[in-house]
Design a protein around this nucleic acid. Structure first.
Lengths: 113, 113
DNA sequence: TCCTTAGTTCAAAATCTATTGAACCTTTGA
DNA sequence: TCAAAGGTTCAATAGATTTTGAACTAAGGA
């Protein structure tokens, strides 16, 4: 099973450090724009290579920002909205408000089909 | 004069990246605990060496998190509370709520007089 | 004027983070 | 059973960040 921190193991410095990155903020923006629907890793492919995304998902998961659940050959990514709200009230909302408006990193443009 | 970004130049990824660091979060915690009183650099000396703090203050200033004003031979550090609230409503408050409770980095303990 | 206080700057070293591609694993469907 | 889809892991590299100490600067007071 994939390791996820419990709510009280989520650390502010770690969450901030993990979200202080264009690619990971773009992942958050995509998740938020799609509502509460969990997305498979492949949905984010414009943001980087498979292995690079895998790295970013692990960072987000270890920090407690996303949940990753195996589902067949896929893995579904979802935001740990309730957990983050419980731990740091107001934080996620204020970040998402801006994250959904952020221009995506260069790569997405270059690789756009 | 010291360069400070204007309110609309403040960038979320940069603010988050800058605050995703124990030392800088501790600086924020100290500022918040002292109310709105500006503090001189030397007040933070338990958090690191002079040159190291100078580096962290520059990072915080460049990201738009603090304001640094010369005052005699000192420099007074203050939080850009209003500017951050205007740019990212709710963000600073939710971070401060936790930052003021955070255990200080190891160094402070070792160097405590 | 000279000294002290307070902080900056610089270059070097140490450390950490992100990115890549190749090889791999696991589940599912044919 | 085999192949494909969807991801992970690893080692290597590149790049960025943090830390250090020594040398420096600027303002204020004796």
């Amino acid at each position: 099973m994939l390791q996820h921190p419990t709510v009280d193991q989520i650390s502010l410095p770690q969450v901030l450090a993990v979200l202080g990155d264009q690619t990971r903020l773009a992942i958050l923006g995509d998740l938020a724009r799609r509502g509460d629907e969990p997305l498979a890793c492949a949905e984010f492919k414009l943001l980087g290579s498979k292995s690079n995304l895998s790295y970013h998902f692990a960072k987000l998961r270890e920090a407690g920002v996303i949940r990753v659940e195996p589902c067949g050959t896929k893995r579904l990514i979802s935001l740990r909205k309730d957990d983050l709200n419980a731990r740091f009230p107001g934080l996620l909302d204020s970040i998402l408000a801006t994250a959904v408006t952020l221009p995506p990193p260069e790569k997405r443009i270059e690789q756009a089909v």
